[in-house]
């Protein structure tokens, strides 16, 4: 039986008249990576801040490890670690001093700290930089140091707000391998991301849009939500092609991705023929047109565009 470390139900938070979180419910199991996915302004950061106990919610309940965060935010602080988008590092302290500072604030014992520090720095490839000032680290290394500081007290739940935004691909991969090794240790991770390719790496996903839950489940489940199929059409001018495709019959959504356009259609064979004919008739240049497997991104764009037509925005 799996234990639910995060239980959120009916969570609502308003800023003025704006509902940043609107009746949100989800759970996260021990030892899983739950991805919070959604466009900017979906309420990802607000959700994480409420869970971390730095922001009070208007209504609903949040239980972390069985403890009520909204009633007693102090109780969960040694249980969790929260890393905001901009992790607060002291740039005039060295890597080791930053880790030491957070270790002492969390009252980690001397022996435990040394062992943990070595382990964390090795895992992130930063052992060489122990004596370097945090302000002189690259963006990716700062994130890794932030995670090291956040993990020094061995939390059971790690809340990460867009840890990979603005980080180079190599560091991104390293960050994810750190997250996997944490899960291996039994730590649960709640991570928000704007990169949809990263969403596939999560065990489960929470798709958010305008503070509401659009979808909650595994990436595979998410993809199975998609009716029909995805067509990939390469084009010298993807944006023009996309605008033509959108109005066609049987097209559910379309998005430009690099030099191709991904089109969600109700029937792959029928619509392939139909679109080919349409392009040739209006002399729109296009390259390869083939069926492709759905990515999280395709489903995401489909789900959002469907949401938009439903609520008329």
């Amino acid at each position: 039986m799996t234990e639910e470390i995060v239980q959120v139900s009916g969570l609502t938070k308003c800023f003025g008249g704006l509902k940043a979180i609107d009746n949100l419910s989800f759970t996260a199991q021990k030892g899983e990576i739950l991805g919070l996915v959604g466009p900017d302004g979906a309420g990802k950061t607000t959700t994480l801040r409420v869970l971390a106990g730095v922001l009070a919610a208007d209504s609903g309940s949040v239980l972390l490890g069985g403890q009520d965060v909204l009633r007693n935010p102090e109780a969960i602080k040694s249980l969790i670690s929260y890393m905001p988008q901009q992790f607060g590092l002291y740039e005039d302290l060295t890597v080791a001093e930053n880790i030491r500072f957070y270790a002492d604030i969390f009252e980690v014992s001397h022996a435990a700290r040394q062992q943990r520090e070595q382990q964390l720095l090795e895992a992130s490839g930063m052992s060489r930089f122990r004596g370097r000032l945090a302000g002189q680290l690259s963006g990716g290394m700062k994130r890794k140091l932030g995670i090291a500081c956040a993990l020094i007290h061995t939390p059971q739940l790690l809340l990460l707000d867009e840890p990979t935004t603005g980080v180079d691909p190599v560091s991104r991969r390293e960050l994810w391998s750190i997250l996997y090794s944490l899960v291996f240790e039994g730590v649960s991770v709640l991570v928000s991301t704007a990169y949809l390719d990263e969403a596939e790496r999560c065990h489960r996903l929470l798709l958010m849009y305008k503070g509401r839950r659009l979808f909650f489940g595994t990436p595979t489940e998410l993809k199975s939500m998609l009716p029909g199929a995805v067509l990939s059409i390469s084009s010298p001018n993807p944006e023009v092609l996309r605008s033509i495709v959108v109005g066609e019959q049987g097209v559910l959504s379309a998005m430009a991705m690099g030099d191709t356009v991904h089109v969600v259609v109700d029937d792959a064979d029928l619509r392939s023929t139909q679109l080919r004919a349409r392009f040739e008739q209006s002399r729109v240049p296009f390259g390869e047109l083939r069926r492709t497997t759905a990515s999280v991104e395709d489903v995401f764009v489909y789900a959002i565009s469907r949401q938009r037509t439903q609520i008329g925005t």
């Binding site: 106990g53 730095v54 102090e74 670690s81 905001p84 607060g88 002291y90 969390f106």
Partner: peptide
């Protein structure tokens, strides 16, 4: 941002 960071510690 270190103030907020310290606030989520015990």
């Amino acid at each position: 941002g270190t103030l907020e960071q310290i606030m989520v510690t015990p």
